[in-house]
Amino acid sequence: MFKKLILLAFSLVCAINLHSQKFVPNIPIETFKGTYTTMSKELSDDSYYILSFWATWCVPCINELDALNEVYDELSKDLNFKVYAISTDDARTKRRVRPLVNGKSWKFDVLLDENHDLKRALNISGLPHTIIAKQNEILHRRVGYAPGEELDLLEKLKDYEVE
């Protein structure tokens, strides 16, 4: 048993030190129309992207997106960035996504990852999970949301722009 544990720990340490996921994988993803697009097509502009993984039943996810929505207009004047709210709602709650987004007047584009193909490919375990990418290159990722953290996320974005 201990041998196996040591092996697991060793693999983990190696993996963390030497490697990390660099790009958003190019896989097909569903739009509100029920048709498919690909991640590389959606992230093809030369700008920064915030990918926020959420679900209609996840209270902190909705808090984060509501908060981002509040500051979105103001910030998109100065910053060149785009937000994708990527819903991980499955068949139980997927039908609720479009009415909810409309009922909240969110200004983001929404993509649907119903059977978690993208979530799995990005190794996401907990929600909310937020990624900052420049085109498809991953610059930063974080798990969870605390009130006000959206401002920190936008500060990070500003820093990247200055660089």
Binding site: R95, R98, P99, N102, G103, S105
Partner: peptide, 15 residues
């Protein structure tokens, strides 16, 4: 059967 109605600021969904 699933149907929905979308207006700015309003969303309805029925299943």
């Amino acid at each position: 059967v699933n149907a929905g109605l979308i207006k700015d600021g309003l969303g309805l969904d029925f299943t």
